[in-house]
């Protein structure tokens, strides 16, 4: 009898409701990988339904998938598991397109998933590292607003970085 009560407290389930009404039932230990949810749980205590009006169901699902993996593997944190997590993270971000990356990043930031923000910003960085300025403009869909000559001036000041 006492054992059943311990299991209910350790595997408390939370309902997360996304902006489009999609709900996710997740274990507390998984959801609290996100700083924002952790704060809500600590502050409000008993509330089991959490509404997240800024995140759409598709991306919330992906964020929770990441949390689940990292919460599970955290229980026995030896070096081998760390490697497994790294591989999983690599696969997770491998084929993400710009649109998905953008929304995931915004969701992770909003939910204060610091480690996930790190993973995603590093991914974006890896996509633009070593690219030419023109290619960056293309990737970010922005136009140069420098006056003629200004760009050349910056290039001269930092000439070693452009070699």
């Amino acid at each position: 009898m006492s054992s059943s009560s311990t299991t209910t407290t350790t595997t408390r389930l939370l309902m997360l409701k996304a902006s489009d009404g999609v709900t996710f039932e997740v274990e507390e230990a998984v959801a609290t990988k996100l700083g924002a949810i952790n704060n809500m749980v600590e502050e409000e205590g008993s509330e089991d339904l959490i509404c997240l009006p800024n995140v759409n169901g598709k991306f919330l699902g992906m964020v929770l998938e990441w949390c689940k993996k990292h919460a599970n593997n955290n229980t026995n944190s030896d070096k081998g598991n760390d490697e497994v997590n790294k591989w999983w993270d690599k696969e997770f971000v491998m084929d993400l397109d710009q649109n998905t990356l953008y929304h995931l990043l915004m969701a992770a930031d909003y939910l204060s998933g610091t480690e996930l923000v790190d993973l995603l910003t590093e991914k974006v960085a890896s996509m633009i590292r070593g690219k030419k300025v023109e290619e960056i403009r293309e990737t970010f869909k922005i136009k140069s607003d420098f006056l003629p000559g200004q760009e050349e001036e910056i290039r001269k000041k930092n000439s070693w970085a452009f070699e």
């Binding site: 923000v117 790190d118 910003t121 590093e122 974006v124 960085a125 890896s126 633009i128 590292r129 070593g130 690219k131 300025v133 960056i136 403009r137 970010f140 922005i142 136009k143 140069s144 607003d145 420098f146 760009e151 910056i154 290039r155 930092n158 070693w160 970085a161 452009f162």
Partner: peptide
């Protein structure tokens, strides 16, 4: 800013030319 913090110093400085 987070993204830039993952880049090599040279890339960060080169990207000053992207936009004002």
């Amino acid at each position: 800013v987070e993204i830039l913090s993952w880049l090599p110093a040279e890339s960060v400085l080169r990207f000053k030319r992207v936009q004002k």
